[in-house]
Amino acid sequence: MSEKVLEIKNLSVEYNTEIATIFAVNGLDMDLDAGETLGLVGETGAGKTTTAKAIMRILPEKVGEITSGNIVVDGKDVYAISEAEMCNIRGKVVSMVFQDPMSALNPIMTVGDQIKEVIRIHEKKLTKEQIDKKVDEMMELVGIPANRKVEYPHEFSGGMKQRIVIAIALACEPKLILADEPTTALDVTIQAQMLALIKDLQRRLGTAMLLITHDFGVVAQICEKVAVMYAGEIIEYGPVEKIFDHENLHPYTIGLFRSIPNLKVKTARLNAIDGMMPDPSVKLHGCHFAPRCKYASERCKADQKMIETEPGHFIRCCRFDKEQGGSANE
């Protein structure tokens, strides 16, 4: 058993807005080993970004509330330490790459200063010259000439901005990166470059990564494990090859795969999953997917457990529960 960099137990997050309480994450468990890459997949509103923000402890103040569970990053319980201690963890032990590079950089600071800022906070022993050298190294590492560090974000293209965001995230060689749809805002050719860059740097630095995405192609390319999230829960978890063999999956995951257009066959319409995501302001019981599931039965009204269908592959669906007479495996 290798060292765990991330352990989430029974995490629930609520947003208390004036209009309603939103149950964004409901009893989520997740582990990540050192150096491992986990793809967190799910549609918009499933609670992926909320999970990442909860790990960083940057949920919107007063609105976002952890109602149960705990998060341990590199042996430290994130919600049991002071804000000052948390500042030492953010950027140093765990860092985050945001979705939209266009707005993720401060428009009135040079990119060099923005990389420098994170190094200066966490590497207090370095001299000024060493910090400057480190900034240059990081720029070169992500493929941008170091002499451009005096320029401002608006002087770079979207892809280059994302490279800088990645340079900031990796500058202090964190043990864990949370990448929140790092390629969604980029066009396809740049996406491929960016994924190759992330994967390469991750291997070199031995960083674990939680990759949030709704793109199965990206997951197949760089992840070792996949977690599928639906309505605030992980409903399927397993090694990437087990999920991508398309056998014995959660009905929702099957639906997700079916909705990917096949380039070899002429399709008039995409195969969508019938129905809508449940209203997140209603506390759900039983299987969250049941209302849209064609296999739904009386048993789905009970709360669902994660069932290990084969070593390392978990599914939150009673059809796989042999003790209860599940039938999906036969």
Binding site: M56, I58, E83, A84, C87, N88, I89, R90, G91, K92, S95, M96, F98, D100, S103, A104, L105, N106, P107, I108, M109, E117, V118, I121, H122, V165, I168
Partner: peptide, 24 residues
């Protein structure tokens, strides 16, 4: 978003207010 980025870099609250928010 850049305030979020600054937070996730570990920037202290006071520096976030004066260096990132107020200047913008």
């Amino acid at each position: 978003d850049y305030v979020m980025t600054a937070k996730s870099k570990g920037v202290k609250k006071r520096d976030i207010i004066f260096k990132h928010q107020l200047r913008n």
